[in-house]
């Protein structure tokens, strides 16, 4: 069937032999297919991890759904109440305040962390002591948030806290500790978050800055741009994907961790720092209303999942890959 170049004339097509652009093409399908190879090897490799993961994540997830439809009374019995918990949530002020405070908290943390973090990165980039300095600056991130909360509680304390003494001496505060007043408590917890996590922003920004293509900067300089111009028009657009990742990560982490808030204010004073996860903790582990707690937990998880989808989109196109491909 295959021509072997003996030179005989073959001006017509036959038996499904078609030609496209002067080359032979095949339009028909194979008569039978071979059996597919078994992928058992890979499935066995994945199974243990996936089974364990399913057990400790999927099962609890369904448990949450089921439990959120229950009312947990004084005794061990639970009573099915349908969507009552959710309806109560809708009318629950503290629930909605919890969301508002959570976003407010995240917003302020991010605002300062990005500004200071990026600025620090600009200052450190190419600095003589860059490596040593950044290693020192990383130390707060290594500390357990709960411990950080304790240390700063000690620092903010109105009786013996050195930082409170500083604030008083500078005239910023009066007698009440920063975390003791409803006006300033939020500032207090934001300060601790900034202290711990700004270096992460700096690290990420530095990683991005090092990947900025040199030639873009040089071309811009030849065109007559100053250093500031260079930064704004070349560096910033190139590190923008990195910053995006940093923002999303920190945002998600503010949902996850309440260790610092628990140590510093416990959600007070007068619940001005009761962000939603803290409220959830109270409902579930202080008042033991597991049914309502499950409902709150579910709403938190759903929002997490939505953000997760966004994050995965960004992850599947890692910042480094995008910058190497010219964004």
């Amino acid at each position: 069937m295959v021509p072997t170049g003996s030179g005989s004339a073959r001006p017509t097509t036959h038996n499904g032999e078609h030609y496209v652009d002067g080359a032979r093409v095949i339009e028909y399908l194979p008569s039978s297919l071979n059996a597919l190879p078994s992928s058992r090897y890979y499935l066995w490799l994945m199974a243990p991890a996936l089974i364990l993961l399913a057990a400790i994540t999927l099962y609890p997830f369904f448990w949450l759904i089921w439990m959120s439809l229950q009312n947990v009374g004084a005794g061990p019995e639970t009573e099915f109440v349908g969507f009552k918990n959710y309806i109560r949530l809708w009318a629950d002020d503290k629930f909605w305040t919890g969301w508002v405070l959570l976003f407010k908290y995240s917003f302020f943390c991010l605002l300062f962390e990005i500004t200071i973090g990026v600025f620090l990165a600009v200052v450190l980039n190419g600095h003589r002591f860059e490596n040593i300095l950044i290693t020192i600056f990383l130390m707060p991130m290594m500390m357990a948030p709960a411990i950080a909360g304790l240390v700063w509680y000690y620092l903010f304390n109105s009786t013996f806290g050195w930082y409170h003494w500083l604030f008083q001496s500078l005239g910023i505060l009066g007698e009440t500790s920063i975390i003791g007043s409803t006006e300033t408590a939020m500032a207090g917890i934001v300060i601790v978050d900034i202290w711990q996590w700004t270096p992460l922003i700096t690290l990420i920004t530095l990683a991005g800055m090092k990947r900025v293509p040199r030639d873009q900067l040089e071309a811009n300089m030849v065109d007559g741009a100053s250093a500031v111009r260079n930064f704004i028009s070349i560096t910033l657009p190139n590190i923008y994907p990195f910053l995006l990742i940093a923002i999303m990560l920190r945002f998600m982490d503010n949902f996850r961790f309440i260790d610092v808030i628990m140590r510093l204010t416990g959600g007070g004073p007068a619940e001005v720092t009761k962000v939603l996860p803290v409220y959830l903790f109270d409902v579930s582990f202080v008042f033991f209303k597991l049914g309502r707690g499950s409902a709150i937990a579910l709403t938190l998880l759903i929002v997490t999942i939505i953000f997760g989808k966004l994050l995965v989109k960004v992850f599947e196109n890692p910042a480094s890959k995008r910058i190497d491909q010219g964004n």
């Binding site: 996850r256 961790f257 579930s284 597991l290 707690g293």
Partner: peptide, 20 residues
């Protein structure tokens, strides 16, 4: 997506069912 969302779930939210 499932794998990464388990990493991002708020600890407090996971704590409730796990504890029970």
């Amino acid at each position: 997506f499932w794998i990464i969302s388990t990493r991002m779930a708020p600890v407090v939210a996971v704590l409730v069912p796990l504890y029970a």
